[in-house]
């Protein structure tokens, strides 16, 4: 069994989640609009990964022994940029430049421009295959690196995700730990109204994955425990952790609503959102 987190560790992770959200929305507001909703729903898994699960070194982003993260839903890069900046991969000032001419931080995650990004993504459906390739290479070389993969629910409407879903169990990629940020919303509305994903846990299970279905995918403790379980499971299967999350979590103007995907964020709205997020932070 894994060691239980202390109360202080839990508080630290929770605070980190809200810091990620605050910095992500500030980053988006500097430009005026961006992918707020998914950045808010994915913040907690990023908080856990970068708090104590992943091996990485901000001073040496290309460290060979690091674990890899593929944010396949690459449009949620603001949350990852915020995470990386807060962890010291690059200066916080960079967050003010997203999408501005000549920036290091394009709207979609870019491995060539951003220290700490392992794979460029943005054309949905592609990241899983790349993560599987990385995991396969580490297995063949008997290296201990884990590969983490974050998929979107809308993204999982892409057929390539299911090609990968067949491939990874075939090759026993138990060093691949994947998540679906199942926030139930996509650009045009609710997934259920557009192309329903249904029971994603059952789907991946049937494809041969070791699946954990988290009722509250924004709960850092649950995420931490699921990752620990995934790391220590001995089925030889790749792990899938379904995160039932809330899109736009923390900013009530968009939270769980169809306007949450990529809203404009005015100066006034930013103030409003930050006040809300700060109150969550302070409540810990």
């Amino acid at each position: 069994m894994t060691e239980k987190l202390t109360d202080d560790q839990i508080k630290e992770m929770r605070r980190f989640s809200w810091r990620i959200r605050m910095e992500a929305i500030k980053c988006i507001a500097e430009f005026g609009l961006g992918h707020v909703g998914g950045s808010m729903s994915v913040a907690d898994v990023l908080s856990v990964l970068y708090s104590d699960e992943m091996k990485y070194d901000p001073a040496n982003p290309q460290w060979e022994e690091r674990d890899r993260l593929v944010l396949s839903k690459g449009h949620c890069a603001p949350a990852l940029y915020a995470t990386l900046a807060l962890k010291g991969f690059f200066p916080m000032e960079w967050l003010k430049t997203m999408n501005k001419n000549g920036t290091h931080l394009p709207s979609h995650a870019d491995r060539l421009l951003v220290p700490g990004i392992d794979m460029s993504a943005g054309s949905l459906g592609q990241g899983g295959s790349v993560a599987a390739g990385m995991a396969l290479a580490f297995k063949l070389d008997k290296k201990p690196n884990n590969v983490y993969l974050i998929l979107g629910d809308g993204e999982s409407q892409e057929g390539q995700v299911w090609e990968m879903a067949l491939f990874a169990p075939q090759h026993h990629l138990d060093n691949l730990i994947a998540f679906v940020d199942y926030n139930k919303l996509q650009l045009d509305g609710f997934c259920d109204d557009i192309c329903a994903m249904g029971d994603m846990a059952a789907k991946f299970e049937d494809f041969g994955w070791f699946v954990q279905n988290l009722e509250d995918g924004n709960d850092v403790v649950a995420i931490h425990e699921a990752i620990e379980t995934a790391k220590t499971q001995t089925t030889g299967k790749p792990s899938m952790i379904i995160l039932n999350t809330i899109k736009g979590l923390g900013w009530s103007e968009i939270q769980g609503k169809t306007n949450s995907h990529a809203p404009a964020v005015s100066h006034e709205q930013l103030e409003e959102a930050l006040a809300e997020l700060q109150s969550h932070y302070d409540a810990i």
């Binding site: 295959s129 990385m134 067949l166």
Partner: peptide, 25 residues
């Protein structure tokens, strides 16, 4: 051990190849 027959899934094969290459293959 150095051969991967992916099955009939060209898009995934290319992605897997990319991942392999980014891990040194």
């Amino acid at each position: 051990e150095r051969t991967v027959d992916c099955g009939i899934q060209e898009a995934n094969m290319v992605g897997v190849a990319v991942g392999l290459s980014l891990a040194g293959k």
